[in-house]
Design a protein around this nucleic acid. Sequence first.
DNA 1: GAAATTTGTATTGGACCTTTACGAACGCGT
DNA 2: ACGCGTTCGTAAAGGTCCAATACAAATTTC
Lengths: 401, 401
Amino acid sequence: MPTDHQTASTTSMLRVMNERAVFGEIFRLGPVSRPELAQATGLSKPTISVALANLGRAGLVREVGLRAGPAGRSALLYEVRPEAGWVLAVDIGRSFVRLVLADLAGTIAARVDDPSGSRNPADLLAQLTGLADDLTARVGIGRADVTLTVFGTPGIHDKDTGALHLAPNLPGWSLPGAVDRLSAVSPSPYLVENDTDLAAVGEATYGLGRDVAHFAYVSIGTGTGMGIVIDGKLYRGARGCAGEISYLPIGEGDPLQDDPAAARRGMFETVASADGIVAAARRLGWAGATSAKEVFDAARAGEPLARRAVEVEVNHVAHALAAVTAVLDLELIVLGGGVGVQGGDLLLGPVQERLPHLVALAPPRIEVSTLGADAVLMGAVAVGLTEARDLVLARTVAATP
Amino acid sequence: MPTDHQTASTTSMLRVMNERAVFGEIFRLGPVSRPELAQATGLSKPTISVALANLGRAGLVREVGLRAGPAGRSALLYEVRPEAGWVLAVDIGRSFVRLVLADLAGTIAARVDDPSGSRNPADLLAQLTGLADDLTARVGIGRADVTLTVFGTPGIHDKDTGALHLAPNLPGWSLPGAVDRLSAVSPSPYLVENDTDLAAVGEATYGLGRDVAHFAYVSIGTGTGMGIVIDGKLYRGARGCAGEISYLPIGEGDPLQDDPAAARRGMFETVASADGIVAAARRLGWAGATSAKEVFDAARAGEPLARRAVEVEVNHVAHALAAVTAVLDLELIVLGGGVGVQGGDLLLGPVQERLPHLVALAPPRIEVSTLGADAVLMGAVAVGLTEARDLVLARTVAATP
DNA sequence: GAAATTTGTATTGGACCTTTACGAACGCGT
DNA sequence: ACGCGTTCGTAAAGGTCCAATACAAATTTC
């Protein structure tokens, strides 16, 4: 049990701490006056003034107007200077590459969605670099002005070897060092995160999980996955594999005896992902079923075979969420991914009804994602903003001797 | 996503922070010299001296001897004054009540194990109060000298209502306010924690999980449960129900169709707990099986039916740990509880072998508890010590105007 | 247009920590 | 036994930072 010991501080670190606190409150509260900052931080007015002077000199905050109060002198308002930092968010999806350039205030300045072709490292890198240059040029900043780049990819990024595991859709990226080549996209520091994890952060920051302390995002689509956000922080697990619900031992039979390929892919993913639904429909007698969307449409139209296939899916999803609830005891689970979003109307009610029968605990609320396909990108922005805020501040502090 | 904002500090809070840091390092490093403390905290020698003077005046630390170095003046060593605080740990088990009185240094000064009778609130309270008085008297301190009392109980403590849920073995304790009556045992502040959670903390502090950041303790016995320790902190979940693996949807058939009572109890607990093993043995043809211990003994003797019953148990446990691994991605899982400890030799190997076939991820290490029945008690001591350290420090700081 | 109120800043004082310097204590070698 | 190098502990001086107080500036209300 490695317990983090309390840190000691010297006087000169106080200024850093307090400036950081002031900067953080400006982020949190938006345009805000000095008295409000004094209130929020517990610091005195003169201290706030000094901190604002330093932050202003460093170009991190700016005056933005006056607040007209009921009486008395109007207060100057301060806000984060948006151009103080830029976050490049990249979602490397199965069929699309999406990029967003956001300023430090979180405003999205430019966006690109590219239905890309090849996924081998060299082609993908060239494509990403070109798109990134497009975006920065469009906004009128240089490549070097990007504070931080955040990549969302499927699979698990092994930071020691630079390899990407469990991402069969990205051939060539599982070789050692392959992920490190992403540094070529932008001269900034960069982060590589699992796409489902980012989607979870996105939903937790901009979506339904905003005020929820124990939250998870469950993605069901071509594959399955889960991102866990606890107390506002992503939970990654010992090796970054937390939330790999593909491997939940849920479904009929025993993978060892049945099908080793399915075992490698994971029991839950095999039965519950899009092609698992198609397989279920076929097994039930609908030989011509080709896509999950088709099955859901038919179920909405009242087709009995399709409805039974959906029932099977409901059962699998309910069992998975039951397992997650038994382990994590969450407040809210948001359903996403292709199946989760497009089939959400058919899944949500039955799953919610089924869950209390499986776990005699207070079940979590279950909702369908509001961000949809943008969840990954928005999560990358959120992660990037949090990190970029620290980066610009650290840069400033270092430059104040 | 509630993000905790950076706190601001004033100069006078620096002293508090630094004294806290010094005190923490003394805890962490044991008898330690001033130069070592300066090194560990990053503070200067004079500051350490001042902090030690204050802590000494408050009775929290004391000189303990000299360190003879290879050359130069010998350094005075400081350690926590054990009598500065006392933690009373209480394990309310199924057939035993165990109490321990530990000083602030963590030394166990007195212990009592009582094979108690009645479990209704009034009787149990009387018994606990008597035993607690015995312990304090034996050590020579007063009731009021106890800094903190930590109770370990089965079930989930609802802090809002003061009721204890999911603890069928403690009749009467599920009424609102019942748990609050535990305050009568000692005039100190008190905490009520789930026994399995405490056992997890015990193993994480004194047992096999000492240097592990992602850890869980899985208890299998009369019931089943899991305690999760992440980065040294207990993970409780949204309502304190995290780790209730009794409800993992693992086992044959569907509880809804089969047996509503089993559904209330939880699928996994029904099949994998001690009486689940007995039931499995009977189902396999051993009609006379009466206890899990008997089944394990027979399996060790080579009895075929018993060995098959153990195989069934292995399968269930492996599935449960697979689900836990898929969700949490742990480094280490420690197996405890009656079945876990006494049947560990038969379960460990087969489960470890089975797990990689169920999850294609790096599986966690699995070990059998070394603390055994003392895990709950030791966990209560660990939790109490952490908290008591803050309490005595806060008391001191408040008394220094 | 004056009073009331709120905002921003200048000044003073206090709390804290570090640096520097020096005396105290100890071991080792001669 | 004595000196020397080394380490430990403390004292004094200096610097940084923040709060409190006081006051000037700006704005609304009556």
